[in-house]
């Protein structure tokens, strides 16, 4: 066995000091996620802080994304993005808990909920960090399709990186990485459908809050 995974586990084990406030939670999420995973069962405030961190980051990334269209979208997009992510978490939590438990994780529901929010928070933070790049692209094009594609790619990239901490937290509880990876695909599909259901997110506001029902594959194909 190579030494790299063992080193990673060691890092996680030694990182046991819990974060005490929101800035510390953000820092711990980026630098030593083990410190958060260690205390999810004992301290429910950590999960609440993670949810708050995700909400703030999603609002900021929503505003940054809405600068492309401007107008009412500056108000609507952040709210839609934040509520959409919360709804995705509610929809996908049961499957994460069941799949992880079936494949060996010894976790309580609140730990699963916390591990899920670790992933979503990191995803949201990454979306904020990508906002300047998206903004630069937004200044260079007026095409909704181009901007939509860039935002979609950044969203998927952030999600996959973000869900790595969810996977690591479940692995730490004895779960199998494969089951969480499989669940990650489901989460991405739900996220893409949510972005389709909540459209327009990139284009201008046309008087309707939502643009009707459409399957995400048809939307992206068109």
């Amino acid at each position: 066995m190579s030494s790299r995974p063992a080193q990673r586990i060691q890092d996680w084990r030694t990182a046991s000091e819990p974060p005490k406030n929101l800035p510390e939670t953000i820092e711990a999420l980026l630098k030593r996620p083990g410190a958060i995973a260690d205390h999810l069962r004992a301290d429910p405030r950590i999960t609440r802080r993670l949810m708050m961190c995700a909400a703030l980051a999603l609002l900021v990334s929503g505003i940054a994304s809405a600068t492309f269209s401007g107008g009412a979208q500056l108000f609507l997009v952040p709210i839609k993005v934040t509520l959409g992510a919360f709804f995705c978490a509610v929809l996908c939590m049961p499957s994460l808990h069941v799949l992880s438990s079936l494949f060996g994780a010894r976790v309580e529901l609140r730990e699963t909920w916390g591990a899920l929010w670790m992933g979503i928070s990191l995803m949201a933070i990454l979306m904020v960090s990508f906002a300047p790049i998206a903004w630069v692209f937004g200044q260079a094009t007026s095409s909704i399709h181009v901007m939509g594609t860039i935002q979609g790619v950044l969203l998927i990239l952030s999600t996959f990186i973000g869900l790595r901490v969810t996977r690591a937290a479940m692995e730490r509880a004895g779960g199998s990485a494969a089951s969480v990876r499989l669940w990650g695909l489901l989460f991405v599909v739900v996220l893409l459908q949510m972005s389709t259901s909540l459209r327009p997110l990139v284009g201008p506001y046309e008087g309707e809050l939502l643009s009707g029902k459409l399957f995400f594959i048809e939307h992206w194909a068109s």
Partner: peptide, 23 residues
């Protein structure tokens, strides 16, 4: 039983999809 558990746990996702496509 395992299959029923997994399917039951993803049923919220399918309900969301059922409401998201053309009725």
């Amino acid at each position: 039983t395992s299959a029923a558990l997994i399917l039951g746990s993803i049923s919220p996702v399918f309900t969301f999809f059922a409401y998201s496509v053309t009725p």
